[in-house]
Design a protein around this nucleic acid. Structure first.
Lengths: 233, 233
DNA sequence: GATGCTATATATAACTT
DNA sequence: TAAGTTATATATAGCAT
């Protein structure tokens, strides 16, 4: 942007990267501030980097949270709570919120992984997934495959040859180890009445699951890193 | 900042304010994108304004969530809370919990829709979706396309012909009406270096989006049912 | 009201201290 | 390694369409 035109790619040189980071972070926050002032809107910028112990939050943690809470149901609560003992009411509220939040978090995990799955379909590949994600992705795939198998087995003509999709599962190198005991995939003959669309889809998924340059999914997926999601640290 | 030096204060003239907003929002997001790319860090920008029905979220709702999840480690507050009155601390806590919960709720919606999207890919079709789902699905598609476009535009060779995925968007009959003004998809030549997989995927999505017997998605998706997400029902 | 177009104001990469 | 300087690259305010 100045003496040279600079390609927009990761700056490999450590010192230069850090210098640029500091300068541009400052610039970005200034821009955000100006936009907010000039146009009278709420905005928030959060920058998470290894250069700052605490994430950089603009305009402030509280301000950021204000922006994040687009709907203003808060004021209503502030008014009504005047009638109760402040503490108990608030504690109650906190407990409730925590409980709901915790439940959300758990339910979210599956949806998040499904999201990941779609992102793969959208062409992002598996490179950026960590071990936990891959693990859960594998689990989700198993669940889906089991469900699909179940549905297939309900078709009359499939009764003598179920387990086709489980075959796909095996082909996809999904770790059998992850199946709960007693629920082993029943791998039988792959030949069955699948529509072209189905085959295309399965092929697509297989392609997506096969990342040649990375280590095989087998080794990764079976690695049991079930770290709990941090909750209200 | 250009022909005149401009005082940094709220722009009273309506049209000018909006014009400035659009320009600067674009600039801000670009800066954020560059910072992220150049320094390999995670960042998120959220702009909440009356000009956009949906808050502007960069790099994407999912990306923002990733950054925000880091942001929730705010030990700073825990330390300093000793100085606050119990009430203000609890209020802050509540605010935080509510913010997080609210965000969860909204992000959930997105994931839910993504789930729906994947179910479509799994062969269930769009028959069972209500108008809100379709609406949100359209929005989600837009977000994803924008994110993908952003990534594509980062490839040097794509700089002269970005918007390829937006082309897919148009082909998919995604309603242009849903694009925020000033962010019109740049539909150019569809011919570009897309891999066979990409084409296959796009074709698949197109097929899924095209439900011959139902009313076209165009009419449904552009139906402006921006109902707020219920929070704390 | 949205865009496109400059003339300038800013931001900042490469240097210097 | 950080802070200051400077030459340029970018961003964008004020207009024109």
């Amino acid at each position: 942007m100045t003496r040279k035109k600079m390609k927009l790619s990761y700056i490999t040189k450590d010192s230069a990267r850090k210098a640029t980071f500091r300068k541009r972070k400052k610039g970005l926050l200034k821009k955000a501030s100006e936009l907010s002032t000039l146009c009278g809107i709420e905005a928030s910028v959060i920058i998470y980097s290894p250069y700052d112990a605490q994430p950089e939050v603009w305009p402030s943690p509280a301000g950021a949270q204000r922006v994040l809470s687009e709907f203003k149901n808060m004021p209503k609560m502030d008014q009504s709570m005047g009638m109760m003992s402040q503490k108990s009411f608030l504690q109650q509220r906190i407990e409730l919120a925590n409980k709901q939040l915790k439940r959300q978090w758990r339910d979210n995990r599956e949806k998040e992984i499904t999201q990941v799955m779609f992102q793969c379909l959208a062409g992002q590949g598996l490179e950026n997934l960590n071990m936990m994600d891959l693990n859960d992705l594998g689990w989700l795939l198993e669940q889906n495959l089991k469900d699909i198998d179940r549905r297939i087995s309900m078709f009359p003509q499939a009764s003598q040859s179920q387990g086709s999709v489980a075959t796909a599962s095996a082909t996809m190198t999904t770790p059998e180890a992850m199946l709960k005991s007693g629920e082993k995939a029943q791998v039988k003959s792959p030949e069955r009445g699948v529509s072209p669309e189905t085959e295309q889809r399965q092929q697509l998924i297989k392609d997506l699951m096969h990342s040649p340059e990375d280590m095989g999914l087998d080794s990764v997926l079976s690695f049991g890193d079930n770290n709990p999601i941090a909750f209200f640290p």
